[in-house]
Amino acid sequence: MTDALRLILEDTDGTQLETSCTRLAVIWQGKEVWIQQDGRGQLLIGVDVEEGDAEYANLLLRPLATNLVSLQLEMEPADMSGDDEEGHVHGPDCTHD
């Protein structure tokens, strides 16, 4: 299976352009929302967090109809108190040392 995404970009007049890429981002509410395949047929969607951000972005996916979903971006205050039981948890994607 390939990691490439086949894209169809459409202008307001209906003109379509087909292209492909391995990863794409949409700037939405000032945040980069990245979309990519994981090589196993799944679509990964994530929001970049920058050093010093005071908020975390949460993506909420809700079904609207049989073939339609709503994706909502909500900002949540980041816990700046350090690593405690309710603070940041270091995971495999964490960039901290």
Rank of each mutant, 00 (worst) to 15 (best):
W34F: 01
Q42E: 13
E55P: 11
D97C: 08
D3T: 12
G91W: 03
E74S: 14
R62I: 11
H88T: 05
V47L: 02
T22K: 03
Q72D: 01
V69R: 15
D83W: 09
R40P: 05
T95Q: 10
E86Y: 14
M75E: 06
D93Y: 12
Y56W: 15
G87T: 00
G14N: 01
R6K: 07
L59M: 00
R6P: 07
D48P: 03
D38T: 08
S20I: 05
R62D: 14
K31V: 00
N67S: 05
P63T: 09
M1R: 15
G52S: 02
T2A: 14
W34N: 15
E76Y: 05
D11Q: 04
A25D: 08
G14M: 04
D93T: 10
W34I: 01
V69N: 15
D11M: 03
L5S: 06
L71E: 08
H90F: 03
L71V: 04
S20V: 04
M75C: 12
A65L: 08
D79T: 02
E85W: 08
S81P: 04
T22Q: 07
D13P: 05
Q29K: 02
T12S: 12
L68T: 11
E51I: 09
C94I: 07
E32V: 02
D83E: 13
H96S: 10
A4V: 02
T95W: 10
T19N: 12
Q37L: 05
V47C: 07
E55Q: 08
L9H: 10
D53A: 03
C94K: 08
S20F: 09
L60E: 03
V69I: 15
E18I: 00
D13S: 15
H88I: 04
V26D: 10
L71I: 15
M1K: 07
A78E: 07
A57E: 02
H88V: 11
P77K: 07
S20C: 01
W28C: 12
L59G: 01
Q42M: 12
L73M: 06
L24K: 00
N58E: 07
V26T: 04
K31C: 05
D48H: 00
D13K: 06
K31Y: 04
N67K: 15
D83Q: 14
G30M: 00
D53G: 03
D79H: 08
L71G: 08
T66A: 10
M1T: 07
L68C: 13
L60S: 07
K31I: 00
G52V: 04
H88N: 13
Y56C: 13
D79M: 04
G52E: 01
G82V: 04
E32D: 04
L73P: 01
V33S: 03
H96F: 01
P63S: 09
S20T: 08
T12Y: 12
L9Y: 05
G14L: 00
L9A: 00
E76N: 14
C21L: 09
I45V: 02
T66W: 10
V49T: 15
N67E: 14
